[in-house]
């Protein structure tokens, strides 16, 4: 198991380096360099080219591309992500400030879609052909085909504005930060963010469950005189779980991408809404670093999914 994890980590590292390289290349291709951003446009004319060259020299900007890339990479590995253009705040500070909100939202959405998606999928499979099954199938189709921001706006309209049950946006009010103060805020954005994934997980776990229930070991289990719940869950669902976990892993990037949209629809103060602000303000270093961090998050998530798959399927462990 340990060698499996190590090997999997070793594959991840070159991928990370390659992606960092692309991000750095992107930064290089954006107009201007650090020096041009450091200078106030109003005084730009009073600075001589020699002074500019000196500043570039001091910042190491005249070194070769690869030299600069390695220095940059070395800094990134140490957590030094550079500075934002607007206000010159360290990017790591901004991200650390915004990350908890995003993690809170994504983990809520992940848990919701896994638990609700699997339960509905299993119910659908067990009641195959019944009205419940047909209704769930239709809902699932709608869920995967309607964009999330649309659900978001409709949800705000109905549950926040018309019914007034839940707040329309934000994460917490100053002074109100107990768990129960926060819960109402996360319900709308969390559920809306997870809808597409929930529908996907539901459809997939339904078919995985049907497949597993048609296998011969189910008949063996029944021939042993086991109760139905045990046959369906301990034997049927347990085997259907492996492909479902793999699917959840594949879909994680959509969750991370979706959070950008949902965070801005619900004014959720996370990394996603920061990204939108950064794009609006042409803050390239911040945009690129957030992109790099999301790639990192996706890779980390897929690593965790692989380890989980190996843990739940004894046949994978050898490979």
């Amino acid at each position: 198991m340990l060698t499996f994890i190590l090997r999997r980590l070793l594959i991840t590292i070159p991928m990370l380096v390659a992606i960092s390289f692309l991000v750095y290349l992107g930064l290089e291709l954006t107009p201007g360099d650090a020096v041009s951003h450091m200078i106030n446009p109003e005084v730009a004319n009073s600075i001589s080219p020699e002074q500019l060259a000196e500043m570039r020299e001091a910042l190491g900007l005249n070194k070769s591309f690869f030299e600069r890339f390695s220095i940059w990479l070395f800094n990134v590995v140490q957590g030094n992500f550079g500075h934002s253009l607007s206000g010159g705040v360290a990017i790591s500070t901004i991200v650390l400030d915004r990350l908890p909100a995003t993690l809170e939202l994504s983990i809520f959405a992940l848990l919701f879609s896994t638990v609700i998606g699997c339960s509905l999928g299993v119910i659908s499979a067990l009641k195959r052909g019944s009205p419940t099954d047909s209704a769930l199938t239709v809902i699932g189709m709608l869920g995967v085909s309607i964009p999330e921001f649309f659900f978001g706006l409709v949800a705000i309209l109905i549950f926040a504005l018309n019914l007034g049950w839940l707040p329309a946006g934000g994460r917490l009010l100053p002074g109100y930060d107990s768990f129960f103060d926060r819960l109402p805020h996360i319900i709308l954005p969390g559920i809306v963010l997870s809808l597409m994934m929930t529908a996907g997980v539901m459809r997939y776990s339904r078919s995985a469950m049907l497949d597993s229930l048609s296998r011969e070991f189910i008949r063996t289990a029944r021939s042993k005189g086991l109760p139905e719940w045990r046959i369906n869950l301990i034997h049927g669902f347990r085997v259907a779980l492996t492909p479902v976990v793999v699917l959840i892993g594949f879909r994680l990037p959509t969750l991370i991408g979706g959070s950008v949209v949902i965070e801005s629809v619900f004014q959720w103060p996370g990394v996603g809404s920061e990204l939108i602000d950064a794009v609006r303000g042409s803050d390239y270093p911040l945009v690129m670093m957030i992109a790099l961090l999301s790639v990192f998050a996706v890779l980390l998530a897929s690593l965790i999914v692989d380890i989980l798959t190996a843990l739940i399927d004894p046949r994978v462990r050898l490979g």
Partner: peptide
Amino acid sequence: RGEEIAMIFQDPMTALNPV
């Protein structure tokens, strides 16, 4: 089932739960 009357199936490859 299993206690009074038990059954062995044709294909042992698929009759056991792999997990």
